[in-house]
């Protein structure tokens, strides 16, 4: 419990900044909808005339951006990028920072096992990731209802948020797995961020070309898509299954590699 609480304390400031970031992103993003409301059909025509590559990059695809949920769907893409970056970074640094800052000799000579330290740190990271998901969920609800005026959006925003949490947890474990594997603690966050960018790039590729659709399974950014949620299809079971498998594998890698390897001291 002491390591868990210590980690929460250590990340207090950074978490506050991320919370402010999410609030600014959601409210400033949805406030643009208020300005565009009424543009309706002409806005959709403008979007349809956009090149597919640009649409894929902006996360617009086939969304009806004149509707509150369609507009939120575009914003959701950016929320996913933002919060998965947070998740992958916290996942990799929460373990590697002890070696990076040379505090490992202090912590690892205390009467606790390495798995206990991993568990405490992963829980602390998961709590922070979940706080950001909740902030994103509540602020999204408030913003969509506020700027859309009327309509029923609770279910969709809840599914968006559950999907977001699923991706955050996945990237958190990817980050921790990389930190456990990399001997040099300074390389773990950089490599984690590179993997995130690479998978995002694959996601754009998959959106652009029909032939590349199988790539959907290897990029988590395709696991939760706005059009599926808005069309009432939620999240495909295969992606939930894949996420569970990947999370389990990365958690196993984290424990196994970190338990067995020499610390960088």
């Amino acid at each position: 419990m002491n390591i868990f609480l210590q980690e929460l304390k250590a990340y207090r400031k950074s978490l506050t900044i991320w919370i402010i970031g999410v609030l600014v992103m959601v409210f400033s993003g949805m406030s643009k909808y208020a300005g565009m409301e009424g543009a309706g059909q002409s806005l959709n025509e403008l979007m349809n005339n956009m090149p597919g590559v640009l649409k894929a990059m902006l996360g617009i695809q086939s969304l009806d951006v004149s509707s509150p949920l369609g507009f939120y769907g575009v914003l959701f893409t950016y929320l996913v990028i933002m919060l998965t970056v947070h998740a992958v970074m916290i996942g990799s640094t929460i373990l590697s920072k002890e070696e990076r800052d040379k505090t490992a000799e202090f912590l690892m000579t205390k009467p606790v096992t390495r798995p206990f330290i991993i568990t405490s740190k992963l829980f602390a990271a998961a709590v922070q990731v979940t706080i950001l998901t909740i902030v994103s969920f509540v602020s999204s609800l408030a913003a969509v209802y506020y700027f859309a005026g009327e309509g029923e959006f609770f279910r969709e925003i809840l599914i968006f948020s559950l999907g977001l949490w699923m991706l955050q947890v996945l990237f958190l474990t990817i980050g921790s797995g990389i930190a456990a594997m990399k001997k040099n603690p300074k390389k773990a966050p950089a490599l984690s961020a590179a993997i995130l960018l690479f998978t995002f790039f694959i996601s754009i590729m998959a959106d652009m070309t029909e032939n590349l659709q199988p790539l959907k399974y290897i990029t988590p950014f395709q696991y939760v898509t706005a059009d599926m949620v808005i069309n009432g299809n939620g999240i495909d079971g295969i992606y939930i299954f894949l996420t569970c498998i990947l999370v389990s594998v990365f958690i196993w890698v984290t424990y196994d590699r970190y338990r067995k390897r020499d610390l960088y001291v």
């Binding site: 250590a10 202090f106 000579t109 009467p111 606790v112």
Partner: peptide, 21 residues
């Protein structure tokens, strides 16, 4: 038995690094 041993061991490394904040 590393965790059990560490209950009874006090260690001072050559270079000391702690949580700066």
């Amino acid at each position: 038995d590393a965790p059990e041993i560490k209950k009874q061991v006090g260690y001072l490394p050559s270079e000391v690094f702690y949580y700066d904040n």
